[in-house]
């Protein structure tokens, strides 16, 4: 109990002092996960929309596989990306292993199925309401997808936030492909893991408190924006 209160105090102290190391680590965390979410969303949202509207043999199997991939183990994803990006791997020539770019790729791969599966479900539900009207207007598949993605943008924000939450809280994949290099690839979660292994539990916990506060702040802001927009646009 004493350790927890000590950690809280330490966390407050770090935030109050605007500790430069903390800011750098938190900043890198946000940057890596932000880019990963953006990249994954650009692929996952259209994929989810396409899967919601498409009808083909084996569609249910594809949906089941996609849903299952929401639980991809981060260390396995990290290992696969590591093998792809290592010198001997097919993408070794890019030379991005142990850089933030590799961490972004790993996180994007990890959360792409989450955003795609959740958006597929949301769009599938809405499609039953919109289908006849859009088909009556002679909208093409592509026009239907775009209309649905735009109309459901506030609801889909929840799927994107779920992906962001998973990305920023993830440690296994970024540890493997990033290497937790101080000042280069150290993010909140890898820093917490390092401090824990060093036995500095109060600092580890303090970093954890800052991480949780960041995630809550971002989710709250997004939620407020969503409810305001829903009220405004119906």
């Amino acid at each position: 109990m004493e350790e927890i209160s000590q950690s809280m105090g330490l966390a407050m102290g770090l935030v109050r002092q605007l500790d430069q190391t903390l800011l750098a680590i938190a900043g890198l965390s946000l940057k890596v996960s932000g880019v990963a979410v953006l990249a994954a969303s650009l692929l996952a949202l259209p994929l989810g929309a396409w899967l919601a509207l498409a009808r083909f043999p084996g569609r249910q199997v594809v949906i089941a596989v996609l849903n299952g991939m929401m639980g991809l183990p981060p260390v396995v994803v990290g290992l696969l990306i590591y093998l792809l990006l290592s010198r001997a791997g097919p993408l070794g020539s890019l030379g991005i292993l142990f850089t933030p770019a590799a961490m972004m790729i790993a996180q994007a791969v990890l959360i792409l199925p989450i955003i795609a599966a959740l958006s597929r479900q949301v769009i599938d539900d809405a499609w039953s309401e919109y289908r006849e009207q859009l088909l009556s207007l002679n909208a093409t598949r592509w026009q239907c997808m775009r209309a649905l993605l735009w109309d459901l943008r506030f609801t889909l924000l929840t799927a994107v936030l779920a992906g962001f939450g998973r990305a920023i809280a993830e440690v296994g994949a970024v540890m493997i492909v990033g290497g937790n290099i101080d000042g280069v690839t150290r993010v909140m979660t890898t820093a917490i893991a390092l401090e824990t292994s060093k036995g500095d539990l109060p600092l580890a916990l303090a970093l954890g408190v800052v991480l949780i506060a960041l995630v809550i702040a971002i989710n709250t802001a997004a939620q407020l924006m969503k409810s305001y927009s829903m009220r405004r646009h119906g």
């Binding site: 309401e129 919109y130 006849e132 009207q133 009556s136 735009w150 109309d151 459901l152 646009h233 119906g234």
Partner: peptide, 10 residues
């Protein structure tokens, strides 16, 4: 035109 009009969120 359908019984329940489907309006886009715009």
């Amino acid at each position: 035109v359908f019984q329940r009009p489907v309006m886009l969120r715009r």
